[in-house]
Every structure is written in structure tokens, then in C-alpha cells.
Nucleic acid binder design. Structure first.
Lengths: 153, 153
DNA sequence: TAAAAAATCATACTTTGGTATGACTCCCAT
DNA sequence: ATGGGAGTCATACCAAAGTATGATTTTTTA
């Protein structure tokens, strides 16, 4: 709506201009009818008026145009954020999430176990649980799913 | 802004009315001077031109007064683009890159072989070559390295 | 055209990954 | 207090992944 306001305003303003011109012409015409003046001068003057009105508008437009432009730059950076809601949905526990993250970094089960001071068996159990919850059958697949779900970065 | 448009429009309309009245008076005055004091037509026309130029400029000014703000929204989206130069550096062949991409999508060696109509052995050979070139020892690691190098998306 | 690089396949072997099952402890919530 | 979830560990087995080596064919390139 606000976009067409100016347009309608312009139409109204133009309408006023036209109305004014018509009124002047009407007055002139009435005058002519009484005093029998030179028609050509009136028409000539009317044309001059119209032309210079347009010229004035164009001039003003040319003069004020650079001032009207306000540039607002908005920068959106798509972050690789995690989605806590998605984590809730999958039902992954804190430990599982931790191990999933380490898997995504290319660590082996043994390395994960060593880093977390837990046995390889435990890691395997967690991994199996992760696969189950993410409906994956391979760790690379689990990582891919997790990333697509924004569970991990 | 849109709420005050109608109000300001009426003010403008009133302004137009006053302007019209003044204009008519001015024209009358010029006319009187033209006929009574017998000035040249050039002066009359020149006056008309000046007046209507001013009118046009005023009109244009009125039209552009609600300072139309041009909002230029520039959106930067950080794309996960691939870096061809990095691929060059690693020396990965076209086939290896293809297989690396499939690995990243969680596919097994067998699945990759089936998809590319090549044997499991060939896939393994390619995978081994990929690991060597990316200095990885596991596929999850290779994928992580490849992604960090922007070799794959 | 000959050498190099890429792509293919195979066989044998080791390592890691993944599945299944069962069990133990701890915590907290009904 | 007790059942259930979370975390832990183990054993056993099979599948998949990864390593090593060698070979053939195709394609590229110097």
C-alpha cells in the first residue's frame, strides 16, 4: 500500500495541475467570448506554461534525485549452528552426543575410548545406540545425518 | 507514514488552492502590464515560463518530499563452496574425488562399487589412494579433512 | 609414440567397525 | 523403594574397512 501512495499522490497533484490549467483556459475562454482577444496568444501561452511546468518538474527531479537514495546494507551470514530441538527429537544423551561429535572428527572408537577414559566396549555400545537413534548403519552415515539435522556442527 | 498521508494531502490541496489563486492574480497582473503598459510579448511569455518552471519544481518537490527511501538489501550467504585449488594441491583424481564424495554421504565401499559399476577391490584401491593423498587413516577422518579443505561440500 | 598417470581388478591379510546379548552401577523420579 | 534411563563393561561373532602387493588396461601427456 505505501508503495502506491506516492503514485496516487502524483496523480492527484497532476490532476490539480490539469484542473488549474483548465480553469485558466476556461477563464480565458470566457474572457475571449466577451472581449474577443487573440486566440493564438492564449494557446501559445498555455503551451509555454505546460512545457515549463514539465521542465521545472524535470529540473527539480534532476536536482533532488541523488539525495533521495538511502542505501541500507543488511548482511546475513548463515551460521552452521546446532539445533537443540533436533537433539531432543533424536533422544541422544549427553554422552552419545559427545561421542558422535568425536566420530565426526574422524576419531576411531579406540581413540574416543582413550580420550574419554572408557573402554572400547563402552564406546561401541554408545555408537550402536547412536546409530539406532539416528537410523544409521555406518558412522559416516551417522555423521552425515547428524550434520544435516544440525545436531553437530 | 501511511496514516498521515490523507491529512498532508488535504494540506497540499489547500496549498494548491492558494497557489492557484495567487497564480491567477499574477497572470492577471502580467496581463494588465502587457495590455495597459504595452510591454513586449517576450516579457509576458518569459514571466509565464518562469512561473510555470517554478510551479513545476514546486510540484516535483511536493511529490518527492516524502523522501522515498530506497532500501538496498545485500544478503551475504556463506556458501559451502568447493575450492578447486585445494583439489589440485591434494592431487586427487576425478574418480577419487567422486568416491570421496560418496564416502562423505555415508556410503559403504560396496555401495560405492555397485553405484559406479566397479568392484569392491577397485573402490578399496581408490579409497587407499585418497587416504594417502589426504593423509588420513580412516574414512571419517578423510571426510573431515576434505571438508575442512573445501574439497567437498 | 613412449612414458606417465589413471583406472581397473585380484588375493591375502590385519584391523576396525558394528551387532547381539547380558550384566553391573548410579541417579532421579514416580 | 523401586523401576527406568544413563553410563559402564565384557564376550563373541560377523561384516566392513583398511593395508600391501602385484597386475592389466586405458587414457593422458610430454
Amino acid at each position: 500500500m505505501p508503495a502506491v501512495i506516492n503514485k496516487s499522490f502524483f496523480l492527484h497533484a497532476f490532476g490539480y495541475g490539469v484542473a488549474m490549467a483548465l480553469l485558466v483556459l476556461l477563464l480565458r475562454w470566457l474572457e475571449i467570448r466577451f472581449f474577443i482577444f487573440d486566440h493564438t496568444t492564449e494557446i501559445y501561452v498555455g503551451g509555454i506554461a505546460l512545457i515549463f511546468t514539465g521542465l521545472g518538474m524535470w529540473l527539480a527531479h534532476q536536482l533532488t534525485r541523488p539525495k533521495e537514495i538511502v542505501v541500507e546494507k543488511i548482511t546475513y551470514v548463515e551460521k552452521q549452528e546446532i539445533n537443540p530441538l533436533a537433539i531432543e527429537t533424536t533422544g541422544l544423551s549427553k554422552r552419545e552426543l559427545e561421542i558422535l561429535d568425536m566420530m565426526a572428527r574422524g576419531m576411531s572408537n579406540q581413540e574416543i575410548g582413550d580420550a574419554l577414559f572408557i573402554s572400547l566396549s563402552t564406546v561401541k555400545t554408545h555408537v550402536a545406540s547412536i546409530f539406532s537413534k539416528l537410523q544409521a548403519v555406518r558412522r559416516t552415515q551417522a555423521v552425515e545425518i547428524a550434520k544435516s539435522l544440525k545436531i553437530i556442527a
